[in-house]
Design a protein around this nucleic acid. Structure first.
Length: 479
RNA sequence: GGUCCCGUCGUCUAGGGGUCUAGGACGCCGGCCUCUCAAGCCGGAAACGGCGGUUCAAAUCCGCUCGGGACUGCCA
């Protein structure tokens, strides 16, 4: 039997990193087993579903590289990937269950049922204990599944092993709302049957719903899929990962300059490991090694620091031309305008040095703004605190003289000249180059100095040295 | 409250009775390299929640306990 799995997000929010990881595991499982990975949009909650969220979800999945199999879900046997297009099918299924005696109409409202829940709570029973089929059956209203009593629902979960529930702990749950729309339980179960889903791998939050789905599947006469309940993702405080913990939308990471391969790699590491030793691996390596039974059963904490580190590893491994192309919009964003070919050329002379120093693409922009900013704010600049004002002034003056006379504006020539100059002055390079760095880049932290000067050009370098000297002669404090 | 799930360094994990004085990775600390910052290299601190049991032997199996989490909707 062909393996067929699905990812079934609800367009009631952006694609969450937790959902993205669940999708990723499903995708890996499908690819590993030469199966099919299908996309289904669970939009039965018409109130909260929006086209914008749906678009975000699709784009995010594509960006991550989780290509779904067209012709199976999308435009497949049932013509659509949206549950909202199949409402008739769910109604029909619910009606059939009523006729078969497995479900019943219930015209009591949620408020009507509240006292029953209260009573159950007080008697230390599960809250839905008294919500059962009424003596006198209704003919309209919502439709509830009737839970058969005295039954154990047992299943072998691929990540958790044998899990069992007692039917007496399940309440008669709504499958069709009084407005005729299906609830998640019904729509999802009907679709899993209709689309011949073989494995359902989803978040652990749905583990308590699984016996309901199994009972529904049996009542509907469908084959039971194999379940795998994936561990949840938590924030640093141990609570379910949410907006409070920073960005949870996958699209945020795309916009913030993360590389899809790095995010893929990181997400795969949350609850799974390729061999216990290897941290960085390709999609192909992951596919070759993946199995749902190897997924850990305990929850994972999302660690932005490790993601950033991993992203840096991928950035450094990028082809130089790819890096330049990827980083351009971020450099322009940092500079605040588009750069012409000439200006971009000066970035390219230091591109390799920047690539080594970049974890997140936008950082590259921050590192090179000094190349394009017209004014260096010396007020903000941090001068080398170890050096006296006179020392700084002397170095700037000597450097200005030296560089003015320098015809060969190459990093090598600049380096030879400046090092020789400092040696004559009896100043170590470690100390002596800092005033120049600050004067020219406006910061005590910058890409390597000689290459930076090359990229800046002779004219602008000398201009900045002159400005910096003017600042010092003006008697301003140096710190 | 009820049901279910989970418990190895701060975090992600390896481990599945002896090869564990518990391995790898991020982060952290120290050092080297060095024009700053990175990167790289070397080194370090850091964990089997607790208690019982089974066994010659337990991080690994069992029980209890403690802790955490999810669910408990005419949300998904």
């Amino acid at each position: 039997m062909t393996v067929r799995v699905r990812v079934a997000p609800s367009p009631t929010g952006y694609l969450h990193v937790g959902n993205a990881r669940a999708a990723l595991f499903n995708w890996l499982f499908a690819r590993r087993n030469d199966g099919q990975f299908i996309l289904r949009v669970d939009d039965t909650d018409q109130e909260r579903s929006t086209p914008e969220f749906e678009a975000d979800i699709l784009e995010s999945l594509r960006w991550l590289g989780l290509d779904w199999d067209e012709g199976v879900g999308v435009g497949g046997p049932h013509g659509t990937y949206r549950q909202s297009d199949r409402l008739d099918r769910y109604r029909e299924a619910a009606q059939a269950l009523v006729e078969a005696g497995a479900a019943y109409h219930d015209d009591r409202s949620p408020e009507d049922l509240e006292p029953l829940r209260q009573k159950a709570q007080e008697e230390r029973l599960h809250p839905g204990h008294y919500i059962r089929r009424p003596e006198t059956p209704a003919t309209a209203g919502a439709i509830r599944m009737e839970i058969p009593q005295g039954e154990s629902v047992v299943f072998d979960d691929l990540v958790r092993g044998t899990v069992s529930f007692e039917s007496r702990d399940l309440d008669d749950y709504v499958i069709l709302r009084s407005d005729g729309t299906p609830t998640y339980h019904l729509a999802s179960t009907v679709d899993d049957i209709d689309y011949s889903i073989t494995h359902v791998a989803r978040g652990e939050d749905l583990l308590p719903s699984t016996p309901k789905h199994i009972l529904l599947t049996r009542a509907l006469g469908g084959p039971e899929p194999i379940y795998a309940h994936l561990p949840l993702l938590f924030g640093p405080d141990g609570k379910k990962l949410s907006k409070r913990h920073g960005e949870t939308a996958l699209s945020h990471y795309r916009d913030a300059g993360y590389l899809p391969d790095a995010v893929f790699n990181y997400l795969a590491l949350l609850g799974w490991s390729i061999d216990g030793e290897t941290t960085i691996f390709s999609r192909q390596d992951a596919i070759r090694a993946f199995d749902l039974t190897d997924v850990s059963s305990n929850p994972a904490v999302f660690d932005p620091d490790k993601l950033a580190w991993l992203n840096g590893e991928y950035v450094r491994a990028m082809d130089a031309a790819d890096f330049r192309a990827a980083v351009k919009p971020h450099v322009e964003a940092a500079v605040g305008r588009t750069l012409d070919a000439d200006e971009w050329g000066s970035f390219e002379t230091v591109s390799d040095l920047i690539q080594e120093r970049t974890r997140l693409l936008p950082e590259a922009g921050d590192q090179v703004v000094f190349l394009f900013a017209d004014i260096i704010d010396y007020e903000e600049a941090s001068w080398d605190k170890v050096m006296t004002k006179d020392g700084v002034a002397g170095i700037l003056e000597s450097a200005q003289t030296l560089l003015t006379a320098l015809d060969n504006w190459s990093a090598e020539a600049i380096e030879t000249g400046l090092r020789g100059m400092l040696e004559e002055m009896g100043v170590g390079a470690g100390k002596g180059l800092q005033p120049l760095r600050v004067a020219v880049t406006g910061s005590s932290v910058s890409p390597p100095l000689f290459e930076s000067l090359t990229a800046l050009g002779k004219e602008r370098t000398l201009d900045r040295l002159a400005r910096a000297r003017a600042r010092i002669d003006g008697g301003e404090p140096l710190t």
